[in-house]
């Protein structure tokens, strides 16, 4: 892997560097930004905020509900045993199990969606620097075209960071 990146102490400086890279013609999806905390509300983090996750979770919930109803009907009709004079398909108790499986499915779908959309777990070789853990903010470009490295370094330096090359 080949990359050029810089580490910043301050999110504003990192944002300047990101803007510099954009000006140098790098597309947003190629600009890597990594932080040790979500820096809520900062413009640096503004991209890729939109997600369909709540709707995916809702779909998961519906799937769970349908599966629950299916399982309940299958289980209850397989042996039509009478207990306490209750109907074989007893909807009051069924509602409880339908609720639990709906929620379980919503939760599992949410976590699944998180894993898929956040790209975890992953073991591929990555642009990363352990100094992020100390609060540094990484801005960089992975696999840049050789011809543009100098201009990218320039843009990163303009933000005020320490440039590193891998």
């Amino acid at each position: 892997m080949k990359a050029v990146y810089a580490l910043y102490d301050d999110p504003n400086a990192a944002l300047r560097a990101v803007n510099g890279l954009r000006a140098a013609g790098i597309a947003d999806r190629d600009i890597a930004v990594m932080t040790a905390d979500p820096i809520e509300g900062h413009a640096l983090m503004a991209r890729e905020a939109h997600t369909w996750m709540p709707w995916v979770a809702a779909c998961g919930a519906v799937v769970g509900l349908v599966l629950a109803v299916g399982m309940l009907l299958w289980g209850e009709l397989a042996w039509r045993l009478d207990t306490g004079g209750m109907p074989v398909v007893a909807w009051w108790p069924n509602l409880i199990i339908m609720f639990e499986l709906t929620m379980l499915s919503a939760i599992l779908t949410t976590v699944g969606t998180l894993f898929v959309t956040a790209g975890i777990p992953s073991r591929r070789e990555k642009l990363y620097d352990a100094e992020i853990a100390d609060g540094k903010i990484l801005v960089g470009v992975k696999d840049p075209p050789d011809t543009s490295i100098a201009s990218l370094q320039q843009a990163l330096l303009a933000g005020g960071g320490r440039v590193k090359r891998v």
């Binding site: 042996w79 045993l81 009478d82 207990t83 306490g84 004079g85 209750m86």
Partner: peptide
């Protein structure tokens, strides 16, 4: 009992009518 409280509480149908 026709309306036996013991029956529906059994999770495995060991107790049934």
């Amino acid at each position: 009992c026709d309306n036996a409280p013991c029956e529906p509480v059994c999770p495995t149908y060991a107790s049934h009518h």
